[in-house]
């Protein structure tokens, strides 16, 4: 796509294309949904196949599964406390879904569903609805005291309350845009430099030598993107647990 017209088309990779022929088109099943399904399959396979042996001394795959499990469990335990157990499956699912979405997107010809703002925003809204419902169920009307911290002078209320409300409402926005922007920026950069390789490679005799430069950049970028994939999944999960902590304990 990119270099066909000798132009840089960095955004074409984000285009949604229906798959599975007419059936897919009629239900709006795109390559994005297919990748989500693939990610889910891989996550479930990792956990189920990894734990298939139920070994006391874990093998490699079981160690991966267990350390992931204990990592997310530790996240819930440390951030939320003992109440975190209830939310652990949700945080685990969220972390793994985002992580596999990010990593799958780095494979050639793959699609990165976390680079779509509607996807990240939907995930963030899930978190937002969850924390609001949990806070309301656990604390009832006291939840609204969250927007005015105790001990603050009453005359500051007209300033503090709007600020707190805006900051609360902006949580799903910041959560979704952070992930979306990171993924889009990374993939656009990869695409741009990949296009440079092709364009420079076609510049006669010296072309292939100059093309090594963007190739080097791309190699480094792929490594960096793997880091970002893990980091953004971690950030998404830890912010979710921090918000859940607020919902459970109200500050």
């Amino acid at each position: 796509m990119a270099a066909e017209g000798k132009t840089i088309d960095a955004l074409g990779q984000f285009e949604l294309v229906p798959v599975l022929g007419k059936v897919g088109a009629s239900v709006g099943f795109t390559q994005s949904s297919a990748h989500m399904l693939l990610a889910v399959g891989l996550i479930v396979a990792l956990v189920m196949y990894g734990m298939a042996k139920r070994a006391i001394v874990p093998g490699r795959l079981q160690a991966v599964t267990e350390s992931t499990y204990e990592f997310v469990q530790g996240l819930c335990q440390n951030q939320i406390g003992d109440e975190g157990k209830k939310f652990f499956p949700f945080v685990f699912a969220l972390f793994m879904f985002v992580l596999f979405g990010n990593l799958l997107g780095l494979l050639p010809f793959a699609f990165t569903f976390t680079s779509h703002i509607v996807v990240t925003f939907a995930l963030a809204m899930m978190v937002f609805v969850l924390i609001t419902v949990v806070a309301l169920v656990l604390h009832g009307r006291k939840f609204f005291g969250y927007f005015f911290p105790e001990g603050a002078p009453i005359w500051l209320a007209p300033i503090i309350i709007p600020v707190e409300i805006v900051s609360y409402l902006s949580r799903p926005i910041s959560l979704s845009i952070r992930l979306f922007a990171n993924m889009v920026a990374g993939h656009v950069m990869l695409k741009v430099f990949a296009t440079f390789i092709v364009l420079l490679g076609g510049l006669g005799a010296v072309g292939p030598f100059i093309a090594v430069l963007p190739l080097t950049v791309n190699v480094a970028l792929v490594g960096f993107e793997i880091l970002v994939a893990f980091l953004q999944a971690y950030v998404f999960a830890i912010l979710t647990t921090i918000y859940l902590h607020d919902a459970v304990h109200l500050h």
Partner: peptide, 12 residues
């Protein structure tokens, strides 16, 4: 785009 969100909810 909307279908993607619906599928996301189902798959997640």
């Amino acid at each position: 785009l909307i279908a993607q969100v619906v599928w996301l909810l189902i798959i997640f």
